[in-house]
Amino acid sequence: MYVSQETSVPPVFFWKHGDETTPIYSQPLKVTRAELPTFCPLESRSGIIELFRVHLHQHPEIPCNDEHGTRFSPEEIHRQAAHEMYKYCYSNDLSQVWAYLWNRWYCPSKWELWARSASPAILRLKTTMVVESLWKVLKRHDLIHFNRPRLDLVTHVVLNKILPRVTLQLTELRGEWRKGRPQQLAAWQKDIKHDWVDMSKPDLQHSLEIELEWRKKPLNAKGRAERLADIES
């Protein structure tokens, strides 16, 4: 029976990884970070990232770069992607990396959460883009005056400010505006309205607004003196 020199407690079992054998104790010995095995060597990370990027953007509506423009079904894309990643990990002796990738990314239940091929439409948004944008607005618009706000305050802001605003935007996008209320103008309608209002102003008012705009600028602003001289003349 194997007995460690550091402790008299025998190991529970031995873990074999290649030619190395590591004893596993019920109370693991204290080891430093430098003594731990490398999960994924640095030279193998770029290959995994490149494969992951390719698998992310594959889609049934995007043909392959071949003579026939071959298209694959979502199931075929998933199967080929998992097989390619498995072969890469197997050839580089990355068993633990493959176990992590399969359990967290490439198993069927996780694959549909991030792979674009899992959706019939070609999505333009990234996985966390919408969530990050939402939190950015929350921090810089609604909670800008609070440093480390309490959870109850954040919950109150989300329920009473964020959700009503998001619901209103979704209503406008889906065209489910309540009858009897005017719908929001389209972008081209806003441009026409702006030009219409601007052209309907008298020449005197228009020139006064331009003069005030230039006078509000700093004294050392480029072209300020010349522009004011032209207006006064």
Rank of each mutant, 00 (worst) to 15 (best):
residue 143 L to P: 00
residue 143 L to I: 05
residue 144 I to S: 13
residue 146 F to W: 11
residue 147 N to T: 12
residue 148 R to L: 14
residue 150 R to M: 00
residue 151 L to I: 13
residue 152 D to V: 08
residue 153 L to C: 07
residue 153 L to Y: 04
residue 153 L to F: 12
residue 154 V to F: 07
residue 155 T to D: 13
residue 157 V to N: 01
residue 157 V to K: 14
residue 158 V to Q: 11
residue 160 N to L: 04
residue 160 N to D: 02
residue 160 N to E: 01
residue 161 K to V: 04
residue 161 K to F: 04
residue 162 I to A: 08
residue 162 I to Q: 08
residue 163 L to V: 11
residue 164 P to L: 01
residue 165 R to E: 13
residue 165 R to F: 02
residue 167 T to L: 15
residue 167 T to D: 11
residue 168 L to H: 05
residue 170 L to D: 01
residue 170 L to F: 00
residue 170 L to P: 00
residue 172 E to F: 12
residue 172 E to M: 13
residue 173 L to Q: 10
residue 173 L to I: 08
residue 173 L to M: 11
residue 174 R to A: 12
residue 175 G to H: 01
residue 176 E to Y: 05
residue 177 W to D: 08
residue 177 W to E: 09
residue 178 R to V: 07
residue 179 K to G: 07
residue 180 G to Q: 05
residue 181 R to N: 09
residue 181 R to D: 04
residue 183 Q to Y: 02
residue 183 Q to E: 09
residue 183 Q to W: 07
residue 184 Q to Y: 13
residue 184 Q to M: 15
residue 185 L to Y: 11
residue 186 A to V: 07
residue 188 W to I: 14
residue 188 W to L: 12
residue 190 K to D: 03
residue 190 K to I: 11
residue 190 K to Q: 13
residue 190 K to F: 01
residue 191 D to S: 06
residue 191 D to E: 06
residue 192 I to E: 13
residue 193 K to Q: 06
residue 194 H to E: 09
residue 194 H to Y: 10
residue 194 H to F: 14
residue 196 W to F: 15
residue 196 W to I: 11
residue 198 D to P: 00
residue 199 M to V: 03
residue 200 S to G: 03
residue 200 S to D: 00
residue 200 S to K: 01
residue 201 K to E: 05
residue 201 K to C: 06
residue 201 K to D: 03
residue 202 P to T: 15
residue 202 P to C: 05
residue 203 D to R: 12
residue 204 L to M: 08
residue 205 Q to G: 08
residue 205 Q to D: 12
residue 206 H to M: 10
residue 207 S to P: 00
residue 207 S to T: 06
residue 208 L to K: 03
residue 208 L to I: 09
residue 208 L to P: 00
residue 209 E to G: 03
residue 209 E to T: 02
residue 210 I to T: 05
residue 211 E to Y: 06
residue 212 L to M: 07
residue 212 L to A: 08
residue 213 E to I: 01
residue 213 E to L: 05
residue 214 W to I: 02
residue 215 R to H: 07
residue 215 R to I: 14
residue 215 R to T: 12
residue 216 K to Y: 09
residue 216 K to C: 06
residue 216 K to N: 14
residue 217 K to H: 05
residue 217 K to V: 01
residue 218 P to K: 00
residue 220 N to F: 08
residue 220 N to K: 09
residue 221 A to W: 07
residue 221 A to M: 09
residue 222 K to S: 10
residue 222 K to A: 12
residue 223 G to R: 06
residue 224 R to W: 04
residue 225 A to L: 15
residue 225 A to R: 15
